[in-house]
Design a protein around this nucleic acid. Structure first.
Lengths: 354, 354
DNA sequence: CTGAAAGCGCTTACAG
DNA sequence: CTGAAAGCGCTTACAG
């Protein structure tokens, strides 16, 4: 009438009894520590298997006073953009949730416009003996070097916001850039007629290395091609990210072309909105990215028609939880988790959780 | 040099030492049990306050072998609709997550078309001594009676999917129906011109008691009024929910009116899509609700243009977690949590998590 | 290579 | 009204 097989919870004590060893030895086997003869080890493993032993996480974390240290390596919130406030909030939310279970998270901020600040912070992370890392691998080469060092130290790491494929990361959590551009085109197509000219605007200091915006543009164009639309697509790259430069550029393009809709490939869409408002242009629909305060302002006032957004906060949250689940619960985690591609309009932004 | 104030964790032992009592007494005060003199109780509470004592959840749940029982009282998945599969999955997901912490969830299913099945299941819940309840209060009066019984027994309960205001629920987690109708109108307005006729379709056996669809219709109409649109809004109520009845009804309406877009106020939008496809009508855009398999099929094939969806799975998940956080972590939980109003199209449905 | 024992921070009878 | 002690299922020195 023993019913160990189904629900009755077995613990190290029962395993030890069956194997005729002490619980300390069982513990050694469970944690793959050295100093156990192959024979006992095998015997114990067999019993663990048979009993389908599930360790009690509570007891484990209570007894082991060890505290896990995670590092979060992300861009600082700058005056330029408060985008990174959202992932940070997600990280903080996860932190609050798992702190009771003995996890600490140290945040390391770098300057998006300064590779060396990334390198410096990455070094600090490595010095501070951490058990897991979350990072936004903006700088590809520097990130590769860093994660290689992590790998040598057996520290698992997760990417958020953008991916570097084939890097043995525990997982990537973030957008599918190409598809978000594709969706952008879909939305634009609701706003124009079949032969209208459409403008794509890239605003970034380093457009050529920013795979971000380029992938989105690619997706955008693909939509029109795939659906055999006749709309002509005009494109402008703006490498100076101050408002006046954007304005100057737009004035030129809009004079040359009879544009019927504008798609901005990143969060700088507010600059374009600003110009449209200033110039009192009301008949050009505008689609862009990200749930930033300024963008929402223009959404409310009707200058921006759609924002595409990918829950940056949730990316931070999920990134940390992936580390936690992997390290604490031994869970397997999905190698890639694409965030949903959310469509925000004037009528639903109030309910959006970034 | 003692630094209890900031980070050094204090436990019952330290409190007992300072209060000059045993830890058992401290425990009694912490849990508000009887059998402690007012004087000692006050003294201990003062110390707890001063030290900002935070109980160790791990130790607490480990020591107390007590298992919390939650009940989930929701509609069964029927052949009619598999909508409720999603909340159920969310509940199961939450269950997996908190089972290690000693929570068990029993599911009680009732028939959406049969109030008495709800009543019967509700009674069973009350017999089975549970510590928390999640329910979908579809049947208003019966639900009120049930939650009153819960309240008498001091059992906290949360509503998902639809709300009954002023019922002292721990919280409501679900859509803002009016606003989702409002958004539906916004989307429809992208698809029609200024004087086009628009059709609203309600499909439900009990339209008049279903506040659901009525609230959405209200929001839909409000959008057109608020934005001073001239579109005429035609409406049809379909009370027989089989395909042939829907078809017959649509044929009649579409003959009488030159309809330019259709808005269906619930997940039955697939019936309308079915008809449009069958009749080879391609120039009437269609907007409806819910991420159901059939609906997605029509979204893919372009018959449905937009689906509005409110993460039913997450509703189930969050509902359970609200109970857990309240009961286990003593957290305060938001009285109302409106789900985001998601817009699904052909181009982003693949990334949607229901 | 292995085991006995203390301890993690609580809760739970039990005794008075 | 109060306290001493055992125990929850693990981990961690320490001893051999």
């Amino acid at each position: 009438m023993k019913k160990n097989k189904d629900k009755e919870l077995v613990g190290v004590k029962e395993i030890a009894r069956r194997a005729n060893v002490s619980i300390a030895t069982v513990d050694r086997v469970i944690h793959n520590r050295t100093g156990v003869s192959v024979k006992t080890k095998d015997k114990i493993n067999a019993i663990i298997e048979e009993l389908n032993y599930q360790p009690n996480i509570l007891a484990r974390r209570l007894a082991s006073k060890k505290i896990l240290q995670f590092a979060a390596l992300i861009p600082a919130v700058s005056e330029e953009t408060d985008y990174w406030e959202a992932p940070l909030n997600g990280i903080i939310q996860a932190e609050a949730e798992i702190k009771p279970y003995g996890i600490n998270i140290e945040k390391y901020f770098f300057d998006q416009n300064d590779r060396s600040s990334f390198v410096k912070q990455a070094e600090t992370v490595l010095e501070n003996n951490v058990q897991g890392v979350l990072l936004a691998p903006m700088f590809i080469e520097e990130s590769k070097a860093f994660v290689e060092a992590c790998q040598q130290r057996q520290i698992p790491y997760v990417f958020i916001n953008s991916d570097i494929p084939n890097q043995n990361s525990l997982c990537y959590i973030g957008p599918h850039l190409y598809r978000s551009g594709y969706l952008g085109a879909h939305l634009v197509s609701f706003l124009v007629n079949s032969n209208d000219k459409v403008l794509v605007v890239n605003i970034s200091k380093e457009i050529d290395t920013e795979h971000h915006v380029l992938r989105k543009e690619e997706g955008f164009r693909a939509y029109f091609a795939d659906n055999k639309k006749n709309n002509e697509i005009i494109k402008t790259d703006i490498r100076e990210t101050d408002y006046l430069s954007v304005k100057r550029n737009l004035i030129a393009v809009l004079k040359d072309h009879h544009i019927k809709a504008i798609f901005v490939t990143n969060s700088r869409v507010s600059f374009v909105a600003h110009y449209l408002q200033e110039a009192n242009i009301k008949d050009i629909p505008l689609v862009g990215f990200d749930f930033l305060k300024e963008n929402i302002g223009y959404l409310k006032s009707g200058v921006i028609d759609f924002l595409i957004c990918q829950k940056p906060q949730e990316q931070g949250y999920r990134g940390i939880m992936a580390l936690y689940n992997f390290l604490v619960h031994d869970s397997v985690v999905d190698k890639i988790y694409f965030m949903p591609i959310d469509i925000i309009t004037k009528e639903n932004y109030e309910f959006y959780r970034n």
